[in-house]
């Protein structure tokens, strides 16, 4: 059987990297982009028409989370029940903390949905350097199709059946990475203390994932803990930059500016902290990060608050 065509939606670095990875595989690859793409690699066909993109049965969506609903709504006009739609979008939307797959469920006829996650970076994926990522879906058919489309000599794609868990894990890693950047920039936090902080953060996040109706193991896997560990070495990750700048005394606005890319976790942290409170899950670290962001904890006290025992 010929491999189905793969369509990538989103012309940013992440979308481009996915298109390049897919083009290395057996599938015909299409890229939908609103910007002009002059330097697209051979083997990737570029289109500005969603109708044309929808001829591909496997779609990978890589747009900013703020655009997810609009994109889904527009795409929905061109899909039917046969499409497999997999997104690589970190975040949870609205007060009800909707996962991105849920948005696609609401806005499109597609039912076979999935998400990408894990510590893979756009540049290593684009360049074909050895890397690892996770794909999760309630449908084995979806994870299989993604692995067939993307896996290669240098890219390992791990499959999970816990879609909701992966989406929550990715969002939580975004939030906790602010704490990682902060802790790394503080001279009084030793590597051992940082490790303790990460381990506690992982337990906290796993409990939140369970409260959200998913599997705690998912957080302890590559899409959660693995991704969080990567934050320690990803000095450019916007969340890490933000945390570092805050630790160095920058105002939230300045820190935000230095992170360059939009840090969606800033809005997400208090919402997840409130969710944890509502469900009776202890979330001291997220709570402290939230307090750090809204300035309700003096900087001098952040470390003691992070390790406070009640």
């Amino acid at each position: 059987m010929r491999a189905p065509a793969v369509g990538v939606l989103g012309g940013g670095p992440w979308g481009l990297a996915l298109a390049k990875a897919a083009a290395r595989g057996p599938s015909e690859t299409w890229l939908h982009s609103r910007r002009a793409q002059d330097d697209v690699v051979a083997g990737v066909r570029v289109t500005r028409s969603l109708a044309e993109l929808a001829r591909c049965r496997l779609l990978l969506v890589a747009v900013p989370s703020t655009l997810a609903r609009d994109v889904a709504r527009e795409l929905g006009e061109h899909l039917d029940g046969s499409h497999l739609v997999v997104h690589g979008i970190r975040g949870l939307s609205g007060a009800e903390l909707s996962t991105v797959s849920r948005i696609f469920r609401e806005e499109t006829p597609a039912r076979r949905l999935g998400a990408l996650g894990g510590p893979v970076q756009a540049d290593e994926l684009a360049e074909g350097r050895p890397s690892a990522m996770v794909v999760a879906s309630d449908f084995g058919e979806v994870t299989k199709a993604v692995r067939e489309a993307l896996e290669g000599e240098h890219l390992q794609v791990y499959a999970s059946r816990d879609l909701r868990g992966l989406e929550w894990a990715s969002a939580l890693v975004g939030c906790l990475s602010i704490g990682v950047g902060y802790a790394q920039a503080r001279a009084d936090i030793s590597p051992g203390l940082l490790a303790a902080l990460l381990s506690r953060a992982a337990d906290e996040a796993a409990a939140i994932v369970v409260a959200a109706g998913a599997d705690e193991h998912t957080f302890y896997g590559l899409g959660g803990y693995g991704d969080l560990l990567a934050s320690m070495a990803l000095a450019d990750r916007p969340e890490v930059v933000l945390g570092r700048e805050l630790a160095r005394g920058a105002s939230l606005n300045d820190a935000r500016g230095r992170a360059r890319l939009r840090v969606e976790a800033i809005d997400l942290v208090p919402r997840i902290a409130a969710f944890a409170r509502e469900r009776g899950v202890r979330a001291d670290i997220l709570g402290t990060i939230a307090a750090m962001l809204d300035g309700s904890v003096p900087r001098a006290d952040v470390v003691s608050t992070l390790f406070a025992r009640s």
């Binding site: 039917d80 609401e106 006829p109």
Partner: peptide, 21 residues
């Protein structure tokens, strides 16, 4: 006819088509 959540009619058979159609 099957409807999606936005009330669009969808071909029912599309839900049981595999990636090869």
């Amino acid at each position: 006819r099957s409807l999606d959540r936005r009330g669009r009619a969808v071909e029912t058979a599309s839900f049981v088509r595999d990636v090869a159609g």
